[in-house]
Design a protein around this nucleic acid. Structure first.
Lengths: 205, 205
DNA sequence: TCGATAATCGGACCGCAGTCCGGTTGGTAT
DNA sequence: ATACCAACCGGACTGCGGTCCGATTATCGA
């Protein structure tokens, strides 16, 4: 399993983190979570987050880069849970099952994760154009999927195909589908159906 | 062919348009095209467009809504060309060919259109979250694809599948792939390959 | 324990997207 | 031709994302 490098690189922390910096990071993340829950993702400015955290605006931006970075940091914990399940959990999400089954399991699990954090995910993906593809977590999902696709069908352009499957799971698209009246189950089934069409699980192609 | 209603709705103009309004629309669009070509899409503010057009800022926003709307208006002419080819051009892009072939033709043609206007397309799709799905042109592409998918495979959720195929053609994704080193031909082939996997052109499923 | 050094802190500052409203102008009915 | 009204015009204004830099504070070597 050569995937483990990903998690390591994501877990890599700076040599040390000063005590005040760590404290402030926590303050900012807690404040953001509180305000998002109370006023909705769109109704919270970065100034408001800084004020609620009792911290200067510059501090927030230095630690999180921009608004999408703050949202990504908020998602971090849940992401790690899913990443852990992929790297070392039981099959079919974890190692041990055939690639096609692992693909299905991953897409289902990722969709459930997305559905549970759609607003914050959408913020992290759309606040800054191109942000989605730069986030470490996206790279993890992409590499994982690409490895599985290559295993299931070596003739495919696994790298590109992996990006396109993830595009079907973009928060902005799912949000638009919801706004268009699609219910969760329909969207979930549709994405899984797409994956099944792309990577036939049984024999043949 | 029940698709024609789409084009009509897109072409529907307000009862009349005042002479000064029409003149200013032209001024603004020309100014925007000029500035985008000269300074790049990211280096042009709405103030600059208004100034270059010799028009007030309010005028620009009233006529185009927001920045993504201005970009969408700039794309309008080219879009209509493609739309015309779909509605009344020769097969396989136009009517007359089997649905699966029309899907392939459409995706290839749309990709070429996208590749030719990637920056402005990206602006129109990402300047405002969710903007892509609200634009009239997107609805046209979506409905066209959905009709063909339903024809090729009535068992599929054509509506959702159509959205997901278009997600693989999102300007932001294609931009990210380019930045990641993928060349145009590779991306084009990958998207067509995806369509072929989703909608088998020959027999069976 | 204490001084040197580098990272952190935070609020003033900037540019831009988008709004508002009093003044103006073009279309239309008489 | 003219008067009325709706639509248009445009620049001042607001709030937000993001930057910058002088002051502050934590860490480490002596």
């Amino acid at each position: 399993m050569p995937e483990d490098v990903e998690l390591l690189s994501l877990a890599a922390r700076r040599p040390v983190e000063r005590a005040d910096a760590a404290r402030n990071r926590r303050l900012v993340l807690d404040a953001a979570a509180r305000l998002f829950a109370e006023h909705g993702v769109d109704g919270v400015s970065m100034d408001a987050v800084a004020r609620e955290a009792g911290v200067g605006k510059g501090t927030v931006f230095r630690r999180f880069g921009d608004k999408s970075g703050l949202a990504a940091a908020l998602l971090d914990d849940r992401e790690r849970e899913l990443q852990k399940g992929i790297l070392s959990g039981p099959p079919p999400l974890g190692p041990g099952a055939p690639a096609a089954e692992r693909i299905t399991a991953f897409i289902g699990a990722y969709f459930d994760y997305l559905a549970g954090h759609l607003d914050v995910s959408r913020l992290s993906e759309t606040a800054v154009p191109g942000a989605r593809y730069r986030i470490g977590a996206y790279r993890f999902w992409h590499r994982h999927l690409a490895i599985l696709i290559h295993e299931a069908d070596p003739s495919a352009d696994a790298d590109h195909l992996s990006h396109m499957l993830l595009a079907a799971l973009s928060a902005d698209l799912v949000h638009a589908l919801r706004a268009d009246g699609h219910d969760w189950e329909r969207i979930r089934a549709g994405v899984l159906d797409l994956a099944a069409r792309v990577i036939p699980s049984g024999r043949d192609v």
